[in-house]
Each structure stands twice: as structure tokens, then as C-alpha cells.
């Protein structure tokens, strides 16, 4: 296991006087589903935004696929961006485009394939995230919350990126849709051999989906590893969050 896709080293972030990250380091291995956990405001999302180059790195270094982010040319950054897809918490679908157009945006911009083949790729992505072809002609405002999530996921996967970032993927979904989405992530990871990084609060997602996780609290990583390893760590947040028993996952 020495195939780190994401290497974060000694990241220090401060907003004004508030210190958010104090020498945070972690590694994500190829093929795993990795979670960022922690109380709200602990900087999980900020860390993710730094990794996907939405937020400048103030101090420390981040390497993705072995490429350090701080010395990238704009062309290199553009190429690197095609290596991952991002599912935002609020989906961030383009409201003026249909579902199919949302998924086709990157294909139309970065490839020169004939329209009929793009349509076929879009239909395939719709199918694998569990949407029907008819849904492709709807607008985001006509969709339910779960369908919007799936559309955003299909859009994130449009160029077959090896890496996928999810920001609280199950928040705002009903329990049935949330579990369905968990299963979808697992299925897609195996099908497309993805590496997945997610920020999440959902206990069931944490217990059933994540391979490894990092817990951020008090500006640092207080624990890192599998669920068992993390639970044995003495920290007030972990104690209150997991609160004792481990539930069995139903598969």
C-alpha cells in the first residue's frame, strides 16, 4: 500500500486571527474511500477546498497524483483538474441547462466527439447513477433532492476521473435516499475504480462506506485510520460522536 493519491503535509491555514489548521497532514491511498470528519467549523470543507485548488494554500504542501500544487503552471492546473470530479453540498447544478446538458458540459468543452456519441456517454452516466433517460430532458428545478444529487454525481463523473470529492453527499436526503446513495458510491467505486474523498457527518455513511478517515478537531487531526482504530482514540469529540456502541452494517 504505497500508492498515495493525495498527500497533505503540514498545512497551516488561518482566516484573520482564527487559526483553522495547525500542521495538518494526511494521505489518501488509491482505491479507498476516505472521510474527513469533525465538528462543524473545524475546517473539513476548507481542507477539501484547498485540495481541489479552490482555496490558496497558505503554508505547507499538498501533492495530488505526485504533483505538488504550489508549483503548477496554469496549464498543469487545468490538466490536473480533469483528474477529479467534485460533488458540492448544494449540488451546484447549472439551473439554466437540462440534466443531460449539465452532464455534457465538460464533454462538449474538452472533447471533440460527435454529438451522438456524447449523448450515448451521457445516457451511460445517467444509467450508472440510477437515473432514467427521460430524466435527461428535465431541468434541475424539476427534480427531487435525491435526483439532483445523482445528476451532480453524474456530472462529476462525466470525464471518468479517477478521483471523486464529495461534500456532505447525504445531507438533505431522506434516510432511504441517503442509504441508496451510499450504496451507489460503493458500487461506482468498484465499477469505475475510483478513489473517493468525502466530508460527512452521516454516521451510517461513516460506518458502512468509509475505508479510512481523518478526524479534525481543535485545528489538528486527532485520529486517522479505520473506524476501529479511530474509535479507540481518546478525544472528547470522538467519544460524543460515536457514543459507545458500533452498529452492524446491513449489506
Amino acid at each position: 500500500m504505497d500508492n498515495a493519491i493525495i498527500e497533505v503535509e503540514n498545512i497551516v491555514t488561518r482566516f484573520g486571527k482564527r487559526l483553522v489548521h495547525d500542521h495538518v497532514s494526511l494521505e489518501v491511498q488509491e482505491g479507498e474511500i476516505y472521510g474527513f470528519l469533525g465538528p462543524s467549523g473545524c475546517g473539513k470543507s476548507t481542507l477539501m477546498r484547498e485540495i481541489i485548488m479552490l482555496e490558496p494554500i497558505q503554508k505547507g504542501s499538498i501533492r495530488l497524483f505526485g504533483t505538488p500544487l504550489h508549483s503548477l503552471s496554469s496549464k498543469g492546473a487545468q490538466q490536473l483538474r480533469q483528474q477529479w470530479g467534485v460533488l458540492f453540498q448544494s449540488n451546484a447544478l447549472f439551473t439554466s441547462l437540462t440534466v443531460a446538458e449539465n452532464i455534457a458540459v465538460m464533454l462538449l468543452e474538452y472533447t471533440k466527439l460527435p454529438k451522438s456519441l456524447i449523448d450515448e456517454v451521457v445516457a451511460f452516466k445517467l444509467e450508472i447513477v440510477g437515473l432514467s433517460q427521460q430524466d435527461g430532458n428535465l431541468f434541475p428545478s424539476q427534480l427531487s433532492g435525491g435526483m439532483r444529487k445523482k445528476t451532480a454525481l453524474a456530472r462529476a463523473l462525466s470525464l471518468d476521473p479517477p478521483l471523486l470529492f464529495l461534500d456532505e453527499p447525504t445531507s438533505g436526503l431522506d434516510p432511504v435516499s441517503a442509504r441508496e446513495f451510499d450504496a451507489l458510491i460503493l458500487k461506482l467505486r468498484d465499477m469505475l475504480q475510483l478513489t473517493v474523498v468525502m466530508v460527512t457527518h452521516d454516521r451510517e455513511t461513516i460506518e458502512c462506506v468509509l475505508d479510512r478517515m481523518a478526524i479534525l478537531d481543535e485545528r489538528r487531526i486527532v485520529a486517522q485510520g479505520s473506524l476501529e482504530e479511530v474509535k479507540s482514540v481518546k478525544s472528547p469529540f470522538i467519544q460524543t460522536f460515536f457514543g459507545g456502541d458500533i452498529r452492524e452494517c446491513k449489506n
Binding site: 446538458e101 450515448e120 451511460f124
Partner: peptide
């Protein structure tokens, strides 16, 4: 999972 007859036309 492919759909052979997919067309999304406005």
C-alpha cells in the same frame, strides 16, 4: 449499462 438509442435534443 449503455443505451444505444440515446438522444438528448432540445
Amino acid at each position: 449499462y449503455g443505451h444505444t438509442d440515446a438522444t438528448f435534443a432540445a
